[in-house]
Computed example of a mutant assay.
Amino acid sequence: MNLTLFQRLNELICLQNTGPVDMLAEKLGISSRQVKYIIRKMRQDCAAPIWFDHHKQSYVYTQDGGCDFKFRPAKRELIAMAVKDAINKCLLWCSLGSCALLQLAGQMDALPV
């Protein structure tokens, strides 16, 4: 695959400015069939989450990031996922702790004074 062509396609996808297949083929100076082949290879070989957005009339990445022979999510998205996971774990522990406190409080009422 022509690296310059690949980089240009990646750039257009990141900008969400590809247009439909025929328009993209014209922008890249290749056939529609070649465009479809390259996008299929990017999906398969690079694990690039490429999707055609009918509203935007452009191929887009379904996650923030870009392709450099292998799709890599943007650091911002990785950080957001880690923070979300940490918050969920904290909430789980807090909810378990409050349940235990409620049970303990209920048992304290049953203690003889």
Rank of each mutant, 00 (worst) to 15 (best):
Q44E: 15
Q44L: 15
Q44S: 15
Q44F: 11
D45E: 15
D45Y: 15
D45K: 10
D45W: 14
C46A: 05
C46H: 01
C46M: 06
C46N: 01
A47S: 10
A47D: 00
A48W: 05
A48R: 00
P49W: 13
I50M: 04
W51V: 09
W51H: 15
W51A: 11
W51R: 15
D53T: 06
D53R: 12
D53K: 07
D53E: 05
H55S: 13
H55Y: 07
H55W: 09
Q57P: 00
S58Y: 04
Y59L: 03
V60I: 04
V60G: 02
Y61Q: 03
Y61N: 03
Y61F: 05
Y61G: 03
T62C: 05
T62M: 07
Q63V: 05
Q63M: 11
Q63Y: 03
Q63T: 03
D64A: 04
D64C: 02
G65P: 01
G66S: 08
C67S: 12
C67E: 06
C67N: 14
C67G: 07
C67F: 10
D68Q: 10
D68K: 05
D68W: 07
D68A: 06
D68E: 11
D68M: 08
F69M: 08
F69I: 12
F69V: 12
K70W: 08
K70V: 05
F71E: 02
F71L: 04
F71Y: 02
R72C: 00
R72W: 02
P73D: 00
A74F: 06
A74L: 03
K75Y: 04
K75F: 01
K75L: 06
R76H: 06
R76Q: 10
R76M: 04
E77N: 11
E77T: 11
L78E: 02
L78I: 07
L78W: 01
L78G: 01
I79Y: 01
I79C: 06
I79P: 03
I79W: 01
M81L: 14
A82W: 00
A82E: 08
A82Y: 01
V83M: 07
V83R: 07
K84C: 08
K84D: 04
K84L: 10
D85H: 14
D85C: 12
A86D: 07
A86Q: 11
A86K: 09
I87T: 08
I87H: 09
I87L: 15
N88I: 06
K89E: 15
C90K: 13
L91R: 14
L91Q: 14
L91E: 10
L91M: 14
L91S: 12
L92K: 13
L92H: 09
L92E: 10
L92D: 08
W93D: 05
W93E: 05
C94Q: 13
S95W: 06
S95G: 09
G97R: 06
G97L: 08
G97P: 03
S98N: 12
C99P: 00
A100L: 08
A100Y: 08
L101Y: 04
L101F: 06
L102R: 14
L102S: 14
L102W: 08
Q103C: 11
Q103K: 13
Q103A: 11
